[in-house]
């Protein structure tokens, strides 16, 4: 019991540090003006996706072995839907943008 409590405390701490880092990097880039142009967006997007994964793994303790299949199913379904919604929106709006030029 003690052992698992220790382990969970250390995972929370690892998660917290990673989450802070992944928040600090985009802020620093924009605030300090270290990067400009599309590269900023790319870094922010990557940091955001990594942030989601950090939350799922370290805070919600989701892994492929012990998590029930239903929960993984809903997670995969959510990923598919996010892909459809975000990808579809980007495609539609870029297409409109292109045609307005």
């Amino acid at each position: 019991m003690n052992h698992s409590a220790d382990r969970s405390q250390s995972t929370y701490l690892t998660g917290f540090v990673l989450a802070v880092l992944l928040t600090a990097i985009p802020f620093a880039l924009v605030w300090g003006g270290l990067l400009v142009g599309p590269a900023v967006y790319a870094v922010i997007a990557v940091a955001a996706v990594l942030q989601v994964i950090v939350h799922l793994v370290f805070f919600l303790h989701i892994d492929l072995k012990s998590t029930p299949v239903e929960n993984l199913f809903f997670l995969v379904f959510a990923a598919v839907l996010i892909f459809i919604m975000v990808g579809g929106s980007l495609w539609i709006m870029m297409d409109l943008h292109h045609r307005m030029q």
Binding site: L81, G88, I92, D95, L96, R99
Partner: peptide, 18 residues
């Protein structure tokens, strides 16, 4: 049902592919 939403605004000006 998550893959058809653009049919509510076909006339917004998307290209023929979309």
């Amino acid at each position: 049902s998550f893959t058809v939403w653009l049919h509510h605004f076909f006339t917004m000006g998307s290209s023929a592919d979309v």
